[in-house]
Amino acid sequence: MSLSAIIFYLISALILGAGLMAVTTTKIFRSAIYLLASLVGIAGLYFWMEVEFIAAVQIVVYVGGIVVLIIFSVFLTQQAGQQMPATPRNRTLWSVLATIFGFALTWNLVSAYGFKALDVEFDDNVERIGTKMLESGSGGFALPFEAVSILLLAAMIGCIVIAMKSTSEQK
């Protein structure tokens, strides 16, 4: 086993272990932190695959954005510091069963397809990603990019409208 493979298995163990801890711990804040570890592990996996741009995006979006958001909502929750009651046994049983079935389904699909390696030159050149985003011809992503932009803009304006105090009503 080469060093690269050892690193891969270490990172995978971190991701899976942290993910498992995130769903089994009874303290909600710790759960958020384990989720963070899991997401950082995924970013590490991307770094291992040498797709740095995706890895950095993973960190910005999930670690810097979503986990911080989750932590903030945990802070604002009542009794967030208390230990939650342990999960009832039959609920654990069913969730374990659901996990096993999900895993079996995925395994079935993957093994039917096989681990075929694509013989395509792979790179994550940021410049190419950028041009593809704004390309309208074939292989371009201009339409989805713009659609998502408009969606986000609408969401932002909606937030401002909701948060804005209407001064006229108060008078």
Binding site: I33, L36, V40, E52, F53, A56, V57, I59, V60, V63, G64, G65, V67, V68, I71, F75, N125, V126
Partner: peptide, 22 residues
């Protein structure tokens, strides 16, 4: 000399807030 150098710095520095929150 990573090809996303500046973006890497912005990305990773956003993690330090988690340490502070923790």
């Amino acid at each position: 000399d990573v090809n996303i150098g500046v973006f890497f710095i912005t990305a990773v520095s956003s993690v330090s807030v988690i340490g502070i929150l923790m």
